[in-house]
Design a binder for these strands. Structure first.
Lengths: 337, 337
DNA sequence: TTTATTTACGAAAACGATGTAGTTATATTT
DNA sequence: AAATATAACTACATCGTTTTCGTAAATAAA
C-alpha cells in the first residue's frame, strides 16, 4: 500500500500540492468544482493527513498528557476517565503516564514532554515529589499544567481539588460521634498537601471534641502494600489499639480490612473504619465501608475543561484558579455505632 | 523562553546544524572536543529534541496506542497497567483510547491512527464490533495490532487470551459440584469470542453433568448498568429463579450482588454467584466472591512484549501467534455449599 | 480602452531533525 | 614531492504539511 499524501494526490489530480491542501481545508481560495474533485479523490484514495507534519508546522499536537501516580486507585481511574471523555470530545489525543509515586519518574516524564509533544498536561503529584523545578520548567516551556487532587500550591496555575480539610474534619467527627475516642490516621505521604489537609481536619475534629492529639496515632504508610500491612497489623495487634481508623486513601482501607480479617477483629464492633474512596464495591463489603467519596469523574472533566479553555485562547498566562469541589460522606456499616 | 533547537545551538557554538545533530547522537564524524562543547551547551540551554521533527523524518513515533472498551473493569485497568509498564521501560509513549464498547467510536479511533500517529496498537475489541474492515485497514497501513482478551480471530496477528472455554467449564462445574442445578449465564455480548467461549464451556459442563441446556437462562446483558439491573432483577424475582449465576464479567457480578441485596436474597444460601473478575475487594465482599481471575497485568505485559519484539525487527508481517494464559479459579464464599 | 479588482490557482519557504554527499584541511603512504 | 587516505566538519535535500506571497486570467470599474 503506497503512501497517499498531498503530493500523490496532487499528481493524480494535476494540481499543485497547495491547491490540494487548501481544498481539503475548505479554503475560499479554491473553486468549488476543484474542491469537489480533490475531496472526492482524497476520499477514494483513503487519504489521512500525517499528523506529525502538521504538528511540526503549527507547533500544536492536539495531544494532552495525563500523569497520575498509580492505577490501583479508583479515584484516579475515574478522574482520567473524565478527562479522557472531554479530550475525545475535543478531538484531542491522550497520552497517559504513571509515575508510581516516584519523583524521578515524574521528573523524567515531564522532561520528555517539554519540547511540544503535548499541548498541555493534567496531573496529580507523585507522593515522592518534594521539589517543583520540573513543574516550573515545563510551564516555562509554554506547556500549561492543570493539577487535580494532589495539587501543587507552589505553582501558579489552575487546580482542581476537593474540600479536604472539611472532609477530614467530617470523617473524624463522624467517627467520634459514633463512639470513637482513639482514632488512628493512616497517612500516605507527608509531601502531599491533600494528605496534610485531611490530617489537619482530623486534628481539628479531635481538638473540637477534646480528644488529645497523639502523634503516634499518625501512621506513616506508603506505596508498598506489604509494608502498609505490617504497619497496620502492628497497630491493631498492640495492647492499646485504636477504636477507629481514618484511612486517607482507598488502598489503606482495603489493607485495613484485610488485617482485621486476619486478626478476626470485628468491624465496626471492635474498630470502625472510614476512608477516602471511590470503590464501587464499598456498599458490598463486609461490612459495607463508610467513605468520603470525591467527585472523581467530575474533577477529571473540569480539569480537562479548564485546560481546553486555555488552549483555545492564545497564549496568555494560565490563571491561578483554585476550584474546590465537594466530597460526599457516605455513611455505611463500617462506622456503625 | 525562546526556543532551543539545533539551530539556536549551532548559532551559539558557531558550528553547523548538522554538526550539532551528529555530536548529540555521538557520531564518529565529530571530534571529541567539539562533541563535548556541543553536549555541554545542549545541557546548559536545556535542549530537548522536537519529537515531531524526528517522527516526520523517520516515520517512527515511539508511541503506541492502547485501545480498551471501558475503564470500569479492573481487568482492563490491570492490563493497560502492564502494557504501560513495558512501554515506559522501552521509552515509548502510550496513547489511550476508550471505545465505550461502541463500534463507531472504535472505527473512528482506528482511522485516526492510520497515518502513523502510532507505531503499533494493543487493543481489546468493543462489544459492539461485528465487522473487521477497520482493523484490516490499519494493518494494511503497516500498523501492527496485538489483541488481548477480546481478540479477533478473523485477523492474522498476535493475540493474547486466556483459556476461556476451560474457565467457563470449570466455573460452571464448580457451581454444579456445590449443588447448583439451574445456572444462569450472564452474557455481555454475542459478538465477543471470549463471551462465546465462556458460554460454550458453560454448556459443556451442563451437558457433562446431565443438566438440560435452557436458552432462556442465557441473559443478554450489555453495557447499560440500569438495564442490566432490571434484567437480573427480573430473573431473580421470577417464580422459577436459578440457583446459580455465572457472570461473564465483573460488573455483572457486582450488579447481581446489588440485586440480591435489594431482594434480600442470601448468597450463597439461596443463590450462588461466580464471576470473571479482577476485583481487589473480592475477598472482602459480603460474602466473599468466588472468581475466575485472569492474569491481567501479565497479559498486558505480554501483549506489549510481542509488539515491541515486532517493532524492533524490520517490516516482516506480524505472525499469527496465539498465546493463551491460564486463569485461576479462586473459590470463596459466594459459591459455598 | 485602460485600469482596478476579484477569482483561482501555484511556487516556495517554513517547521526541526537527520543523513547523504560533498569539502576542506591534515596525516599517511608511495 | 605527489598521491592518497583520513578526520572533522558543512551544505542541502528530505519528511508532509501549512501558509504567505505571487501571478495569470477573468471580471468589473473608470
Amino acid at each position: 500500500m503506497s503512501k497517499v499524501n498531498l503530493k500523490s494526490l496532487s499528481n493524480k489530480l494535476n494540481v499543485s500540492v497547495s491547491t490540494v491542501s487548501k481544498a481539503l481545508r475548505g479554503s475560499y481560495e479554491i473553486g468549488s468544482d476543484t474542491k469537489k474533485r480533490v475531496i472526492d479523490m482524497a476520499q477514494e484514495m483513503g487519504y489521512t493527513p500525517n499528523p506529525y507534519a502538521g504538528f511540526l508546522r503549527n507547533n500544536k499536537s492536539k495531544t494532552i498528557a495525563l500523569i497520575i501516580p498509580e492505577m490501583t486507585n479508583n479515584f484516579f481511574i475515574q478522574a482520567i476517565s473524565g478527562a479522557e471523555s472531554i479530550a475525545q470530545e475535543k478531538d484531542y489525543h491522550t497520552l497517559i503516564y504513571i509515575t508510581h509515586d516516584d519523583f524521578k519518574k515524574e521528573e523524567s516524564i515531564l522532561k520528555d514532554l517539554q519540547n511540544g509533544r503535548v499541548d498541555g498536561v493534567i496531573m496529580s503529584l507523585a507522593a515522592g515529589t518534594k521539589t517543583y523545578d520540573h513543574l516550573n520548567e515545563l510551564i516555562q516551556s509554554n506547556i500549561p499544567i492543570v493539577f487535580f487532587d494532589r495539587i501543587c500550591h507552589e505553582i501558579e496555575t489552575a487546580k482542581i481539588s476537593t474540600d479536604d480539610f472539611a472532609s477530614g474534619f467530617n470523617a473524624t467527627e463522624h467517627l467520634i460521634q459514633n463512639g470513637c475516642r482513639d482514632i488512628a490516621y493512616l497517612s500516605l505521604s507527608e509531601n502531599l498537601s491533600i494528605d496534610n489537609k485531611r490530617k489537619q481536619g482530623y486534628f481539628e475534629a479531635l481538638t473540637k471534641h477534646d480528644i488529645k492529639i497523639d502523634n503516634s496515632r499518625i501512621i506513616m504508610c506508603g506505596t508498598d502494600e506489604k509494608n502498609n500491612y505490617k504497619k497496620i497489623a502492628a497497630l491493631l495487634k498492640s495492647g492499646k489499639k485504636p477504636d477507629g481508623i481514618f484511612a486517607s486513601v482507598e488502598t489503606l482501607a482495603i489493607t485495613s480490612y484485610l488485617v482485621c480479617n486476619d486478626l478476626k477483629l470485628k468491624i465496626p464492633e471492635k474498630i470502625k473504619i472510614i476512608c477516602f474512596a471511590n470503590l464501587i464495591t464499598a456498599p458490598l463489603l463486609n461490612p459495607s465501608l463508610t467513605t468520603i467519596t470525591q467527585p472523581a469523574f467530575e474533577m477529571g472533566k473540569q480539569a480537562a475543561d479548564i485546560l481546553f479553555k486555555y488552549l483555545g485562547k492564545k497564549r496568555t498566562l494560565m490563571s491561578n484558579e483554585n476550584i474546590v469541589l465537594k466530597s460526599e460522606l457516605v455513611i455505611r456499616g463500617s462506622t456503625r455505632k
